[in-house]
């Protein structure tokens, strides 16, 4: 189980994540939602230990992740929000480098990389430089790099970004499949429809604070709202969206 206890992160004294607590269970898909700037990616970066917490604790399988960071990283896979990759490498070279850094046996790594590249429709372009890859292709490389070592904890930050419809459907099924195989899956997304379909529960963040943490069914019942979009709008959207759109149009016409 992944558990966050009163986790906070301040940048120059300003709270980006404020006293966040929740847990993600094996076999479940946990959706992590919030508007832009609500602190989703910051939270996920703290879970990956890419940035340090200002306060709080993160536990994985009952142990503080900082106690044995190496063992924790060995069991974690992460797809970041932005597809930052080493552009001077080819797709195959990048994945081989990641496999080497993770200490996978060369033969096993070779088989997995080939298989993933084929399944993700990247095999024909495996020797082309990543600099020439489209956003979707880069996203697929990130997904392959995150999963090739069969992690127990899968952290996905906007994983559908840039994917075509077919690939997005495959990833949606893959997330469900990973959870069925006992993995802990935590993913953030703005695609509420997808989150509603595949998440067992959701955590909604607003201004760095958790404003909802429950299964979607219970949230629907509690808030007497029909969809996740309606729940999200009530909890995390402050403005009248139609009015805002009108004001923008007026501004450029003035």
């Amino acid at each position: 189980m992944l558990e966050l206890r009163r986790v906070s992160k301040h940048f120059s004294g300003i709270p980006a994540v404020d006293d966040v607590s929740f847990s993600a269970l094996p076999g479940q898909v946990t959706g992590y939602l919030g508007p832009n700037g609500s602190g989703k990616s910051t939270t996920i970066k703290m879970i990956t230990a890419l940035i340090e917490m200002t306060s709080g604790q993160i536990f994985f399988d009952g142990k503080l992740i900082d106690d044995d960071l190496v063992s924790y990283k060995r069991r974690m896979g992460y797809v970041p929000e932005e597809p930052h990759l080493y552009n001077h490498l080819s797709g195959a070279e990048y994945l081989t480098m990641v496999a080497d850094l993770r200490g996978l046996a060369p033969r096993l790594a070779g088989e997995r990389i080939d298989g993933m590249l084929r399944l993700l429709s990247l095999y024909d372009d495996r020797h082309a430089g990543i600099a020439g890859y489209s956003k979707g292709m880069r996203q697929k490389i990130l997904i392959a790099a995150a999963l090739m070592h069969n992690p127990d904890l899968v952290l996905l930050d906007e994983p559908f970004s840039g994917l075509d419809v077919g690939s997005a459907l495959v990833l949606r099924s893959l997330i469900t499949e990973l959870a069925l195989r006992g993995k802990i899956v935590l993913f953030s997304s703005h695609e509420l429809d997808t989150v509603e379909r595949i998440s067992n529960r959701v955590v909604i963040l607003h201004h760095g604070k958790v404003v909802a943490d429950d299964s979607i069914e219970r949230l629907r019942t509690l808030m007497e709202l029909p969809t996740l979009e309606a729940i999200f709008s009530q909890l995390a959207v402050e403005h009248d969206t139609d009015s805002m759109a009108r004001q923008l149009a007026d501004l450029i016409h003035a």
Partner: peptide, 30 residues
């Protein structure tokens, strides 16, 4: 086109030590 097709690359470069040394050395070379 954004993507330059590349038919092949020097994929079978020798291992240059253990997996970490090999990864770093090949990264440096490239």
């Amino acid at each position: 086109p954004d993507l330059d097709p590349a038919a092949s690359s020097i994929g079978s470069l020798p291992r240059l030590g253990n997996s970490l040394q090999s990864a770093i050395a090949l990264f440096c070379f490239r």
